[in-house]
């Protein structure tokens, strides 16, 4: 593995100071489940790694002002256990099929977001749940919609001197009149990279869809909200015709690629199928 310096700050200010020095290529290190693989493959070549594991400010899950705030260092496995997190069904489902148990124990939510892989498994659920992301630097914090954070494959709106601080999950998006769900299509049951993933959040009002969000993984340069498909459904009756049309539009909105795991054509077809299934599943459970 390439040589690098390894810093282990114990506080957030120390971590941010370390990150702000721009004399060399610096990278924050979370659970390491992506970064160590990339280092070994020489896909990234930082001079300095800043390990965040001892920074307590980045840990913890708490209810804060109408949302649940999840520290960036929270391991994926925590989404399967923490009482404040398990009600976010789409996220819980994504966590339960995320890589494998060892990766879930080490890998963090901040890391999955920061890596910004188009196939990152927590990203469609977070988008469907309308998560916000808190970024912190020596000059303060800023919060933006997670949808504005992803710029392209492995490209994000995080500045080099910023750390992912936390994500915020709106508590009101998780009431009894709403439901979220997630499906990951891989080539095997576990330890798989998504071919396609679909997350849906739906709010019901009588026989109408009051509001809806659809997010797609692994079928565009970044995790994608299928906003035109959402428009078809918002405020409308939940009907077979509307559902079919929304699924068709979602498949048209994405831009999948051919690779060794699947063809673009197959991925697009599966977006259609699973968008429809997830909408049905969310509705039926309301």
């Amino acid at each position: 593995m390439r040589e690098f310096e390894l810093l282990q700050p114990k506080t957030l200010p120390d971590a941010l100071d370390a990150l702000a020095q721009n004399d060399a290529a610096r990278r924050p290190l979370g659970g390491g489940t992506d970064l160590l693989v990339d280092l070994r493959a020489k896909r990234v070549q930082p001079d300095v790694l800043i390990a965040l594991q001892k920074v307590n400010e980045l840990r913890g899950v708490a209810r804060v002002n109408g949302h649940v705030r999840v520290g960036a260092s929270t391991p994926i496995a925590e989404f399967l256990k923490h009482p404040l997190l398990t009600p976010y069904r789409a996220l819980h489902q994504a966590a339960s099929v995320f890589a494998n148990p060892m990766i879930r124990n080490a890998g963090t939510i901040g890391g999955n977001i920061g890596s910004a892989s188009p196939a990152g498994d927590t990203l469609p659920p977070l988008l469907a749940l309308d998560a916000q992301i808190e970024l912190v630097s020596a000059s303060g914090t800023r919060t933006l919609a997670l949808d504005d954070f992803f710029l392209g494959p492995r490209k994000t709106a995080r500045n080099a001197n910023e750390l992912i601080y936390a994500i915020q999950l709106p508590a009101k998006e998780n009431s009894s009149a709403t439901r979220s769900c997630f499906y990951k299509l891989g080539l095997r049951q576990a330890d798989a990279i998504s071919l396609v993933s679909v997350a849906v959040w739906l709010a019901r009002e009588g026989e109408k869809i009051r509001d809806v969000r659809i997010a797609l993984g692994a079928v565009a340069p970044r995790p994608l909200r299928a906003k035109r498909a959402e428009e078809i459904l918002r405020g409308q009756i939940f009907s077979e015709t509307n559902l079919k049309e929304a699924a068709r539009i979602a498949a048209a909105e994405c831009s999948p690629i051919d690779d060794l795991r699947a063809s673009a054509k197959y991925r697009r077809r599966m977006v259609n199928v699973y968008t429809r299934r997830m909408l049905e599943q969310a509705w039926q459970n309301l």
Binding site: L6, L29, G31, G32, T33, L36, V37, A51, A99, N100, P101, M102, I103, N105, A106, D191
Partner: peptide, 21 residues
């Protein structure tokens, strides 16, 4: 981190030793 041959417990939690510094 795909095969699990290097699994060890760190503070009782299973992790891939190949992905830890």
């Amino acid at each position: 981190g795909d095969c699990g041959a290097c699994t060890v417990l760190v503070n009782g939690i299973a992790v891939n030793a190949c992905l830890q510094l």
